[in-house]
């Protein structure tokens, strides 16, 4: 393989004039993490609500929850990204659309909202599965004690369901983190985008991608370790 390796490239100044290539990747990493965390807040909140809707003893509530999940699961994330970024501003009243298009950091906000709602459909699926995995009697016991439906969910069903689904939620979080890279198509300068830019500027393809790869693997390991700690922390004695 006649490829000119140059591992020192990371310490060369990038043509953007704001630091070295290493700084460039670092700023990409920060955007990746910030985007993933913000999107996760939306995904967790919306996903929990939709997941709960699907377990309520009400046909309309279930229909709304199911429709949400089907809609967001059956359209590729990249297409959803384009819909939020290119299509939504055109469908809104003109002044709103203009405001949206001129928003600084528009790719970031779009990525957060798009990923948030997309991941919510996957979180919803897990939350529903977690609640339905609980014995039917748990809901009855809460109800029989006089708890309202909302209280039964808040104090009995959800705390148990979240514990059960912690492992799948961890992998959804990781998927969410990896999916931030799809936002490079709308101009988010996240880690993969920065690695790609470094490759274009420096022609050191494999150094750039190797660095990005190692960073992704480290993040994965950190998240998995953290999830393990949380799991132990919230584990219920005797189970």
């Amino acid at each position: 393989m006649n490829y000119n390796w140059n591992w020192g490239i990371f310490f060369d100044a990038s043509p953007e004039g704001t630091g070295t290539y290493a700084d460039m990747l670092l700023s990409g990493l920060i955007w990746t993490i910030v985007t993933a965390l913000c999107a996760w807040v939306i995904a967790f909140a919306v996903g929990s609500v939709i997941g709960v809707l699907r377990t309520l003893p009400s046909r309309p509530a279930q229909a709304v929850g199911n429709a949400y999940v089907e809609l967001f699961r059956n359209i590729p994330l990249l297409v959803q990204m384009f819909l939020w970024f290119f299509v939504l501003p055109e469908l809104l009243p003109e002044s709103w659309g203009t405001w949206l298009k001129q928003l600084p950091n528009a790719p970031f906000y779009t990525a957060v909202v798009c990923l948030g709602f997309f991941t919510a459909s996957r979180v919803a699926e897990q939350v529903r599965a977690g609640i339905q995995a609980l014995p039917r009697g748990q809901r009855m016991a809460g109800t029989a004690l006089g708890l309202t439906t909302a209280q039964t969910y808040r104090y009995v069903l959800l705390p148990n369901a979240y514990r059960i689904i912690l492992p799948p939620l961890t992998s959804e979080f990781l998927n969410n983190l990896k999916n931030t890279s799809v936002a490079l198509t709308i101009g988010l300068l996240e880690l993969t985008a920065r690695a790609r830019a470094m490759q274009e500027f420096s022609f050191q393809v494999f150094e750039a991608f190797t660095a990005a790869t190692i960073i992704y693997i480290i993040i994965n390991l950190l998240v998995v370790t953290a999830a393990g700690l949380i799991e132990r922390r919230v584990a219920v004695p005797g189970r």
Binding site: P135, G137, A141, G146, N160
Partner: peptide, 20 residues
């Protein structure tokens, strides 16, 4: 109903204590 149920104690076959 919640108020009424709070005055009616119920014990289940599978206990249904809240495990967490």
């Amino acid at each position: 109903l919640p108020k009424l149920r709070s005055r009616v104690g119920m014990v289940f076959q599978h206990f249904e204590l809240f495990p967490h």
